[in-house]
């Protein structure tokens, strides 16, 4: 299968400190890829490179290629803002726009790009709140502030907002680390459903979560990609001793 996202020889630095070392990794379409590794291994940096957030930090730079279909998304010619419409991101803490209603949060991506027709916006808001498994809970209070929802609902609202602009890839940076177990289970179930629509790359500290939801898992250590394999293999018979030691809790 040809990868939807093909990362080749990606290295990243914060000033003189190298955070990623020559990473090559292919992400299959309509799959969930989990990135695991101890703190500081470069897993968040990796996904932040993929939607060009890394270079927003002063002194940070990267080299290498990452092909999204036919386009090298790390090329200087690619506009990061338009790239983020193709590669969306959900962060650790739910961050709905606090002054906006639930409806406006989901519609914000479209209204910012000039789409004003109410019928179009209505359709997009409903479709994506349904995709994010939030519609039934909020359909009668769409005008309430997004920040009035519970933490788990806010995170699903952020997922709906990210989906509304129709990305091909959704990056998730520890999306459940601030949530309770019930909300976490809902998001995990959602991720499993969403891969029919979008390709997902998720950073997680929770190895059981990676094991539950992902098709392939990448283990990062000190900026290196140590092992990348089907999840069922990596968690039962890892090939690399360092992976074995990490996932059995011997270090990290």
């Amino acid at each position: 299968m040809r990868p939807l996202l093909d990362v080749q020889n990606l290295s990243a630095w914060f000033g003189k400190q190298q955070a990623l070392k020559n990473i090559s990794l292919g992400v299959n379409p309509n799959s969930v890829t989990a990135i695991i590794g101890p703190s500081g291994c470069g897993k968040s940096t990796f996904i932040r490179c993929l939607n060009r957030l890394h270079e927003e930090i002063a002194g940070a730079f990267l080299q290498g290629n990452a092909w999204l279909e036919e386009e090298n998304i790390l090329s200087a010619q690619v506009d990061p803002v338009s790239l983020r419409r193709k590669i969306g991101m959900v962060f650790q803490r739910p961050n709905p726009f606090p002054s906006m209603s639930i409806y406006d949060n989901v519609a914000s991506g479209l209204t910012l790009s000039g789409i004003k027709r109410k019928s179009v916006l209505n359709e997009v808001v409903e479709k994506n709140l349904k995709l994010a498994a939030l519609w039934d809970e909020v359909k009668d209070k769409l005008s309430q502030a997004g920040s009035s929802l519970s933490g788990g609902q806010q995170q699903r609202l952020c997922i709906a907002r990210a989906l509304a602009i129709g990305p091909k890839v959704l990056l998730m940076d520890e999306p459940t680390s601030a949530l309770d177990p019930i909300s976490t289970a809902k998001i995990e179930e959602l991720i499993n459903e969403l891969k029919q629509e979008v390709t997902i790359v998720i950073v997680t500290h929770n190895m059981q979560q990676a094991a539950r939801i992902s098709d392939k898992t990448a283990f990062f250590l000190l900026g290196d990609l140590v092992e990348f394999a089907p999840t069922s293999e990596l968690f039962t018979s890892p090939k690399d001793e360092r992976t074995e030691r990490y996932i059995t809790g011997r270090f990290g």
Partner: peptide
């Protein structure tokens, strides 16, 4: 403990 890898095996 939800063991993994060699521990799980």
């Amino acid at each position: 403990h939800q063991p993994l890898a060699a521990d799980l095996r």
